[in-house]
């Protein structure tokens, strides 16, 4: 059967076991475009939009789970209070039409270095939830993303969602591209000031083979911050931008030069940090 339209995870895993090379279809904004451009000719598609367990979100014990089929529009409109940084990232994706279709599971599965949700998810130490006939497992995002468009997902596995801690404190996501809509990231920066654990968390997109963070920059700015007043000395903000830029490994391509990407992400880092501080 060329297309499977399962309605639950068990049936999806059965279909995947029967055709390990099948293309998994979520919002279609990556897969169908590849087919349109004749970069891929599907022999078997497993369509995921009817799989009930992949929908919605829930919170338990201070942790949050977002289903793989949650769209950018749902994040932007319904989850802005719960995950403000992710909502900011979701708002930068494509157009309303793309945000209505594209999903978190798709962003994770495609694993583009420029994936718009990935920097914030990395900053949050998100874990990718995978189901398989052998059982479920969770993989930290940093280990899940193994290179440009490559992941640790095994052929029999299905991305069912993403898990993350609830973190208190200001957060911000910024992205650079030629215009505000319909833009693939030239550089992206996510920051979370975790005021409970007094720790700065960051993620950088489109400036390396996968999304990156700079542990050195995080450590230094964590120490420089006045966590009670939420202020930071100017020289420490500048040093933070420089340290973030130095931690990148960008390439030059048709969207940007490596030099511009490195420069831009440093600017974004300073700007995003300032937006999280008290004025």
């Amino acid at each position: 059967m060329p297309i499977s339209r399962p309605t639950d995870v068990t049936a999806t895993l059965d279909a995947l076991a029967a055709s390990p090379d099948a293309d998994l279809l979520a919002g279609g904004t990556d897969l169908v475009v590849e087919v349109n451009l004749d970069r891929r000719r599907p022999e078997h598609v497993i369509a995921l939009r009817r799989v009930t367990e992949l929908a919605g979100h829930d919170t338990t014990d201070g942790r949050l789970r977002l289903g793989a089929n949650v769209t950018y529009s749902e994040v932007e409109h319904d989850l802005a209070q719960l995950v403000p940084g992710l909502a900011m990232a979701a708002r930068t994706v494509g157009s309303p039409q793309i945000r209505n279709a594209g999903t978190l599971g798709g962003n994770l599965g495609t694993a583009s270095p420029a994936g718009d949700t990935l920097p914030w998810l990395l900053a949050m130490d998100a874990e990718v939830e995978l189901a398989s006939p052998e059982g479920d497992r969770s993989v930290p995002l940093a280990n899940f993303l193994t290179g440009p468009k490559s992941t640790a997902r095994r052929p029999a596995e299905l991305i069912t969602g993403v898990r993350l801690p609830r973190v208190e404190g200001p957060q911000h996501v910024s992205k650079i591209g030629p215009r505000n809509a319909m833009v693939i990231s030239v550089a992206c920066f996510a920051i979370v000031l975790d005021t409970t654990n007094r720790r700065v968390r960051t993620g950088m997109g489109a400036v390396g083979p996968t999304v990156l963070r700079s542990p050195d920059a995080e450590r230094a700015v964590t120490q420089a911050l006045d966590w009670d007043a939420l202020t930071c000395p100017e020289d420490a903000i500048d040093a933070f931008g420089r340290a973030c830029a130095e931690a990148t490994a960008p390439i030059t391509d048709h969207r940007s030069s490596a030099e511009y990407r490195r420069h831009a992400v440093g600017v974004l880092a300073r700007r995003a940090l300032r937006r999280c501080l008290s004025t």
Binding site: P2, I3, R5, L25, G27, G28, T29, L31, V32, V33, V35, N36, L37, V45, A47, R49, S73, G94, S95, P96, Q97, I98, N100, A101, M182
Partner: peptide
């Protein structure tokens, strides 16, 4: 454009505005 860039194929799928070029018809 056939790649979700231009919006000229916008349609509603279950009352949600999407680009028809990014929808697999069989789905």
């Amino acid at each position: 454009c056939e790649q979700g860039e231009c919006g000229s194929c916008s349609i509603f799928l279950d009352d949600v505005l999407v680009n028809a070029c990014c929808v697999l018809a069989a789905d």
